[in-house]
Design a binder for these strands. Structure first.
Length: 107
DNA sequence: CTCTTGACGCCGG
DNA sequence: TCCGGCGCCAAGA
């Protein structure tokens, strides 16, 4: 019998938050760690590195709005599709406008 | 047990 | 604005 993949509790908590992020909006690794209330940006980053493929990974980026290294092209496609606010030069997300938190409420 | 390694973040220069 | 340095913190060697 094959076992359904069981994710570490911390990873599930990260996924729960990521699933709440509305299209066109993003959250920083540190933001997610803060909502969970434990661990730090690096823990969230590690979780995403291992299992991120199962969720909307492009909505989770660094606090400075930089695209995920190695997946810039794919990420940009999603941002164009979701109309995520980008900076004038289009090289990164406009955090001032796109940054979201559960407290902002669903859209 | 110590040392290294990250999908990070902040602060100077 | 760009870059380097350092702090952070859990997991693995």
């Amino acid at each position: 019998m094959f076992k359904p993949p069981e994710l570490p509790p911390y990873v599930e908590q990260v996924f729960d938050i990521v699933d709440l992020i509305p299209p066109g909006r993003v959250m920083a690794y540190g933001d997610i760690a803060e909502v969970i209330g434990s661990g730090g940006p690096r823990q969230v980053g590690t979780a995403m590195a291992k299992y991120g493929g199962a969720v909307t990974w492009w909505r989770v980026i660094r606090a400075d709005g930089g695209f995920l290294a190695g997946h810039e092209r794919e990420a940009l496609e999603h941002y164009r599709e979701e109309e995520t606010p980008l900076r004038a030069d289009g090289s990164r997300v406009d955090m001032a406008r796109a940054r979201w938190s559960p407290a902002d409420g669903p859209e």
